[in-house]
């Protein structure tokens, strides 16, 4: 067989392909299952509801690009989009800062009550949001934060903080202590060390939490619908409800709305995926 392959290089290449067929078939299937619905929605976003009802799987001809403009202005997607961007952006910035600082402290400092504090913070991950929503509603009402974007930001930070700290602490704890001792010998204070050593070296883990928090909060529905009542303050996931009437669904416009709300996540993932994968595969620095 080896001799055969030597005489016919083309044949050898074919054997290589054949051996990889099961693997390729699996990848193809996986891509269809995960990417298929996405492509379908993308196609529908360019077609009207009537066209879709006539032929669900047809290609858009002609492509109604105007639907995006219509959703943006007439259906106020522009407003919802900016609301989402402000709320999620602020929440992610706060989460990253507070989470990284807390994780740094838990990973680096030995202080009285450290274990208890850690347990208290991390047990926050086990409380389902449905349990929190009533008391959260009460508290925000009391502080005049009900039906404000700031209130929603605070609620988001509170619910996501435990997971953020959990991920970051795991990574920070693996960084060698000598690095921090060296920075202390070089004259830096604990606060400076956080900014100049922990943050830059912890970038892969931080990117992971940024993307994760962004995706989770961008799609968040329950808190947004309970804590916001003004139409002008709504976030994107609530906007989609506009096209769901009591008796009928405007499928075409829902697809357009979905495409608008998915876009930022795709952009974010494209920016951070490289550094995230680095973080997941490389583990700590050596």
């Amino acid at each position: 067989m080896a001799a055969l392959a030597e005489r016919h290089p083309g044949l050898a290449a074919w054997f290589g392909y054949i051996r990889r067929i099961p693997w390729l078939a699996f990848l193809l299937l996986y891509t269809i299952v995960t990417g298929g619905p996405f492509v379908w929605v993308a196609l529908m976003s360019l077609r009207t509801t009537n066209e879709i009802l006539d032929a669900p799987y047809a290609l858009p001809s002609p492509a109604h690009w105007g639907k995006f403009a219509e959703a943006w202005t007439a259906s106020k997607y522009g407003v919802y989009f900016w609301n989402s961007l402000i709320v999620v952006g602020c929440a992610v910035v706060l989460l990253t800062l507070i989470g990284a600082m807390a994780a740094h402290a838990l990973a680096r400092f030995q202080f009285r009550g450290r274990k208890a504090l850690r347990l208290a913070i991390l047990s926050g991950m086990m409380v389902p949001p449905q349990l929190l929503i009533l008391s959260l509603f009460q508290i925000l009402l009391q502080f005049g934060l009900y039906n404000t974007l700031a209130g929603l930001v605070l609620a988001y930070v509170a619910t996501q903080l435990a997971m953020t700290i959990y991920i970051l602490e795991g990574f920070f704890a693996q960084l060698p202590q000598d690095l921090f001792d060296a920075a202390r010998m070089d004259g830096y204070s604990d606060f400076e060390i956080f900014w100049k050593i922990t943050l830059p070296i912890g970038m892969p883990a931080i990117a992971t939490t940024v993307v994760l928090n962004f995706i989770i909060l961008w799609n968040e529905f329950l808190f947004a619908i309970v804590l916001l009542t003004d139409d002008d303050k709504r976030t994107l996931p609530l906007g989609i409800m506009h096209f769901m009437g009591a008796h009928q669904l405007d499928i075409g416009m829902i697809a357009t709305g979905l495409m608008i709300s998915i876009a930022p996540i795709i952009v974010l993932y494209a920016c951070f995926s490289e550094i995230m994968i680095k973080g997941m595969t490389a583990g700590a620095v050596r």
């Binding site: 060698p176 000598d178 690095l179 001792d181 010998m185």
Partner: peptide
């Protein structure tokens, strides 16, 4: 940080 001492670590601890 204020002792004006420099230390070389076994692991080198380069940033």
């Amino acid at each position: 940080k204020d002792r004006d001492i420099a230390m070389v670590f076994q692991s080198y601890a380069l940033y």
